[in-house]
């Protein structure tokens, strides 16, 4: 009787994980794609050297982080996958979502600061809590880089009083 009850609990958790997990993931991917499109003009470079800008840019460190967790169903599937080996697609999408989200948050911070590019982008991933057994429960992704803030492209016009500066 007790074994049956345990089985029912596990099945309910699997169903909840499958339903809500899928819903959450689809919603997350939609939002990621939308924001990536909106921020496509802000370029990222893993390059450490800056190109020769005509004017001396300002630099500021920007970063984004996210802690993201896998759902019960996917963890179960990954556990099965451990028996036979091969690609663990359920964790692939977790890491993909985490990285893209962290990069987007970094870009959003850079956009707020008026940057036009981010150089020396580094990504760091850490598994913060181990789930049952050796399964990865949740991961943290941290993205950071140096944002390049160019002086206004029409700075010379402002200097000679042709245009009023919109900000001081």
């Amino acid at each position: 009787m007790e074994a049956l009850l345990n089985l029912i609990v596990v099945l309910i958790l699997l169903a909840l994980g499958y339903g809500f997990g899928r819903l959450a993931e689809n919603r997350h991917y939609r939002s990621i794609r939308q924001r990536e499109w909106a921020l496509r003009e802000l370029l990222l470079f893993p390059e450490r050297r800056l190109p020769n800008y005509p004017q001396i840019p300002r630099t500021v460190l920007v970063a984004g982080n996210v802690v993201i967790s896998v759902d019960y169903f996917k963890r179960f599937i990954a556990g099965l996958r451990n028996l036979v080996g091969g690609r663990v697609t359920s964790y692939e999408s977790l890491l993909d979502r985490g990285r893209r989200e962290a990069i987007l948050r970094m870009k959003e911070e850079a956009r707020r600061k008026g940057a036009s590019a981010i150089f020396n982008v580094k990504l760091e991933t850490a598994s913060i809590s181990k789930g049952q057994g050796n399964a990865i429960g949740s991961i943290e992704v941290y993205a950071y880089g140096t944002a390049i803030i160019l002086p206004r492209p029409d700075a010379d016009k402002v200097l000679f009083g042709i245009q009023q500066p919109p900000y001081s």
Binding site: N65, I68, S69, D71, Y72
Partner: peptide
């Protein structure tokens, strides 16, 4: 976070915690 481990998704509490620590 235990609840989120069932449903999946972002653990906002931990995101903030780690950001503060950094």
């Amino acid at each position: 976070a235990g609840l989120k481990n069932v449903f999946g998704g972002e653990l906002k509490g931990y995101t903030e915690l780690l950001q503060e620590a950094r």
